[in-house]
Structure formats: structure tokens, C-alpha cells
Design a binder for these strands. Structure first.
Lengths: 228, 228
DNA sequence: TATTGTGAAAGGGTTCACAGCG
DNA sequence: CGCTGTGAACCCTTTCACAATA
């Protein structure tokens, strides 16, 4: 089994969604070409992606929608439910609990923690916010599969360490900093500030490209300043 | 000027943060090696990244912290302020308005829109939620640089079209679907469900790798089932 | 004829390694 | 001697193109 790239995994998620739609439309079979066009990629990419996990199609006919979806969901681990511990009952944490869309995919927030005494003991959706110190004890009641870090930057690494000690095997991080986890723990970071900055960069570049004179002027003066 | 990859832009954002820290520590110069180690990448990568934009360092000495940071912020377009229109005053939208961290980086939410009559007219932070129909008129008062889509999936594409018509040049999308924008408009999507699924995949794979017997058994039965 | 599965080719990003310079 | 800037080598991902098959 070759190492699977993150982009391949992302596309598997997309395929699942497209297949859900197609299934709702009542289609029985789908070709790699049609699976690709809804996603803006090539049909070869679709076939390559799928072929790393098995031979799910039939030449001349395409893929059976229902069965392919079941395969992909099994590969992604969406054929089971996941117990999620949320740390940080602030803005993002509250939004995550309020947005129930993740439950549909099998991710259940089963406990919410925070360090702020002003929040501990209060209700958040169906949960009562617990003190972060209660995390180790909470593991005895029900183990957690995934931890979500929705705390301020400064607290993030220590929260990660606590979650790892609590036995989670994956962490979704919303704090805008690099975190360190043991290699047997999966980590994904959602960094919204970085996404804004990516847009800012793209817009800025588009402008300087349209007016290359300004680019050279800017880069020039910048380089001059940089020379101390 | 070569095409800049998304990963390079992400790293530039990281460099900016590391430089901010290093600056706070009072350091005057920094080497590509030290810039790299805080981020878990190679020093060669740092130098390659920076060299696509200019020669900001001095051989034998490294980079001047303050000046390099100014260069990077200018490249990312963080030397100005950005006017952001938020569409969708639900969970994520509310969290974004409440979280003031983006303002620090220059991104100001200047207007909030929603389609739900129950929300229109109500206050959200310092804003009054306006009907999405008011978007075209609002542009006359103050133009928007960036639009944020924090609506349900079904509304997302039409909101994007409205934002594009309103003249935004970048869109940050939180709806879990593929969106289409003209090529002169930048698009970034934050798909939290997909991040959860990425974790689910990684954890699942780690298990089957540790017990390869189960993998083969599973893949086998799956392949059999797929054959109709 | 339609479409998959897959080696081979192409493309793009990362790392190496060293010349050039302070 | 230390560190940058960069061409060349390497590696990983995507695309091509076609034999195999329904």
C-alpha cells in the first residue's frame, strides 16, 4: 500500500459528496469523467486515486454509485462514529457545537472543556462546559478519538499535550500556530488568518501583474531598503 | 516573476509570524536555519522561498528581522487594510465577527448580510445585519475587497455570484462545496468537515497498517462486494 | 463503442550542494 | 569562517495514452 497524499484524501472526500448527490438523483452508474467534471479535475486523476485502493469500476460501464460510495466511506473511516472532545468554548468552539452538520458525517462532540472559570459549569448546546483539569478523569467515562483545539494561541500546545495524554489519535487545531504531536497522532490545522492572507496575496499579485511598472518600482525600493 | 505556489504563500505567512515572535524577543538578525527550525522545514526551502521575491539577506550574516518582516508583509499585501463583507450571520459568521483577531492583521468586517428575515435588522457585534438584497446598494457606500461566504451549501454559489458582481476580488468560503468564480477573483475554501474526514482517514489507516491482516480481509471483501 | 486500470512521460515542488560574498 | 542565493538533482503528483475488457 503506497503512502497516500493529503490531496488524494481531500479528493476522496469530494468524491463522497458528489456520489451522495448523484445517488440522490437516482443514478446507478457513474464514469470517472462525470465524477471528475463536477470537481474540476481530470478523469485520469479520479481513476488513479481510486485504483490505489482497489479496482472498483467495470471497463466500459463505469462505477456503481452506491458501492463506490460505500468503498470510499470505508476508506475514509466514515463507516463508524467518532467521539470528539472540544477544548475551548469561545467563539469557534461555540460555533462548532452549534453547527450540527458534523454529526451527520459521524463526528459527535461528546464533551466540552475550557480553562476560563467564567465558562466552566455553563451550558453550551447540550453540554456542560467542564474544567480542562477534568479531562484526564473524563477519559475514564468515555474515551475520545479526536480532540479539537479552539483555544487562544498560548494555551494550544499544552492543550494538545493533554489531549494526547488522554489518548486521542487525531487533533483538529484552530489556533494559528505550529503544534507538535507524536507521530502516531494525526494533526490538521485550520488557520483562517492564513487563508485571509492567501487572498490578500493573490489580490495584491494580480494588481502588480496588471501594472508591472509598479511591481518593479516596489520591488526596487523594497530591495534598497532591505540592504540596511 | 514565476508563478507562486500556494504552499509558498502559506510559508510566507508562517515566516511573518516567526519574525513577529523573534522581533518581540529583540533579535536583530536571523538565519534561514533558525527561521526554518521553528517551522519544521529546511533552511534551503526558506532561502528558495525568499529568493523568488528578492535578495533580502546578507551572506555570512542572515536576514535583518525587522526589514525582512516588512518585505514579507508587503508581499502578502498586509501593509494595507482590507474591507471584508460577511454573508451569513449564522454560527460561523457570528464567530468570525466576534473573533477580533483578523482586524489585527488588517482585515475589517465592514458589513454583514443574511437572507433570513429573522436575522435581518438584528445586531451582530457592532454591525446591523442587512438583507442580502441590499448588497448591490451597499457597494455604493463602501466597496468591498473580500467576501466571506458563511451560508448553507445551497445558497453558496448564488452568494458568490452576488459578491463577484459587487466587485470583490477575493472570496473566503466556508460552505463545503466546490464554487465557481471568474479567474480574476481569488478563492479559498475552509472545509472543516473535510478536515475531520482527513483525521478519520489517518487514524483508520494507522490501525490497518498496524494490523495488516485486517486490511487484506477488509479490502478483499470490499473488492468482492464492489464487483456487483 | 465506452470506459477502466496503469505504465510511462511530464510537470512542479523540495532538497542538495556549492559558488559567491561578507 | 558563516550564511545566502541558486542551478542541478531528486522526488512526488498529475497527466497522457493505450491495452484490456464489458
Amino acid at each position: 500500500m503506497p503512502r497516500i497524499s493529503e490531496s488524494t484524501v481531500r479528493r476522496l472526500s469530494h468524491y463522497d459528496r458528489v456520489l451522495e448527490e448523484v445517488q440522490a438523483e437516482g443514478k446507478r452508474m457513474i464514469s470517472s469523467h462525470r465524477l471528475a467534471e463536477r470537481e474540476g479535475i481530470t478523469s485520469a486523476q479520479v481513476r488513479k486515486d481510486l485504483s490505489t485502493f482497489g479496482s472498483f469500476g467495470r471497463r466500459g460501464l463505469g462505477y456503481n454509485v452506491e458501492r463506490l460510495r460505500a468503498e470510499i466511506r470505508a476508506i475514509l473511516g466514515l463507516d463508524r462514529r467518532w467521539r470528539v472532545a472540544l477544548v475551548g468554548a469561545g467563539n469557534i468552539g461555540s460555533a462548532l457545537v452549534a453547527y450540527r452538520g458534523f454529526e451527520k458525517q459521524g463526528f459527535d462532540v461528546v464533551a466540552v472543556f475550557d480553562r476560563d472559570p467564567a465558562r466552566v459549569g455553563h451550558r453550551l448546546g447540550r453540554h456542560t462546559v467542564q474544567d480542562i483539569a477534568a479531562l484526564p478523569a473524563a477519559v475514564r467515562d468515555h474515551s475520545f478519538d479526536i480532540g479539537v483545539v479552539a483555544t487562544p494561541i498560548q494555551a494550544a500546545q499544552s492543550v494538545v499535550d493533554a489531549l494526547v495524554a488522554a489518548g486521542v489519535r487525531g487533533i483538529l487545531n484552530f489556533a494559528p500556530r505550529k503544534l507538535f504531536v507524536p507521530e502516531n497522532v494525526a494533526l490538521r490545522t485550520v488557520d483562517m488568518a492564513m487563508e485571509f492572507e492567501g487572498l490578500s496575496f493573490a489580490i495584491t499579485q494580480a494588481s502588480v501583474r496588471r501594472a508591472p511598472g509598479r511591481l518593479r518600482a516596489r520591488a526596487g525600493s523594497a530591495a534598497r531598503r532591505a540592504r540596511e
